[in-house]
């Protein structure tokens, strides 16, 4: 009546397996694989060309990545509003406006981000693709992975990225008349505009304020403080 399967994989995936996945993907989609990054014994990132987003999904599904984990996006523009918890008395710092992409690089402000898992080989891959700045529209994965349907709806609502071939891009979370794309960095949190972050009075004293602790912690703090 009940299957009892308890055989763990012989060995958890190594970097050799991840390199093999990258090579396999390159064989399937060719030059559309722009960049790849392997964090040793940890994780794998690939970045593909915008036009071959769907093709990548098809190739990875054929390569055994049948489990759909999530799909989302990142807005790489630094927030023009800062983190809203700086000392109100301090000199305003010139906000950093340079757009710096993360792992595997990129050229545009918005990047699409998805993760697929191979349940047999016990390995996952994070796929990134640039979203064009002028027309934020990508191909939809919803016919490829059924689970991508809702994730793309969420992504459309939060980032304003359109998806070609998606059946229904209605708002999922917010009322239909909501204006703006909340997860874009230029979306202001109005409550923070009218009221400064109250937590600023609660932070522990800085190490420099109390001399004894500063000396004791100096060795461990390193350059992090």
């Amino acid at each position: 009546m009940t299957a009892e399967a308890d055989d763990a994989p012989a060995a958890l995936p190594g970097d050799g397996l991840r390199e093999g996945i990258v090579d396999d993907l390159r064989a399937r989609i060719g030059d559309s694989l722009v960049d790849s990054h392997i964090a040793p014994n940890d994780d794998l990132w690939v970045r593909v060309a915008t036009a071959s987003w769907r093709e990548t999904g098809e190739a990875l599904k054929a390569a055994g990545f049948t489990y759909f984990c999530f799909l989302s996006a990142i807005d790489w523009m630094p927030s023009p509003y800062g983190k809203g918890e700086d000392d109100p008395d301090a000199e305003p710092v010139e906000p950093d406006t340079e757009i710096k992409q993360g792992v595997t690089g990129g050229e545009t402000r918005l990047q699409l981000l998805a993760r697929l898992t191979d349940l047999d080989r016990h390995v996952g891959v994070t796929i990134k693709a640039d979203v064009p700045d002028d027309a934020a529209v990508m191909d939809s994965w919803s016919t490829l992975y059924a689970g991508a349907n809702w994730h793309e709806r969420e992504c459309h609502e939060m980032f304003g990225i359109g998806f070609n071939g998606h059946p229904d891009l209605r708002n999922m979370y917010l009322p239909t008349d909501f204006e703006g794309y909340p997860l874009r960095k230029d979306f202001p949190l109005l409550a923070r505009m009218v009221k400064p972050w109250p937590g600023i009075v609660d932070v522990e004293p800085m190490p420099a304020d109390d001399e004894d602790d500063a000396d004791a912690d100096a060795g461990t703090d390193g350059d992090a403080t």
């Binding site: 809203g84 979370y173 917010l174 909340p182 979306f187 949190l189 109005l190 409550a191 923070r192």
Partner: peptide
């Protein structure tokens, strides 16, 4: 009063 979501864009305070 909104609690931990005092600055959220979708929560009634």
């Amino acid at each position: 009063c909104g609690g931990p979501y005092w600055d959220s864009y979708s929560v009634t305070k």
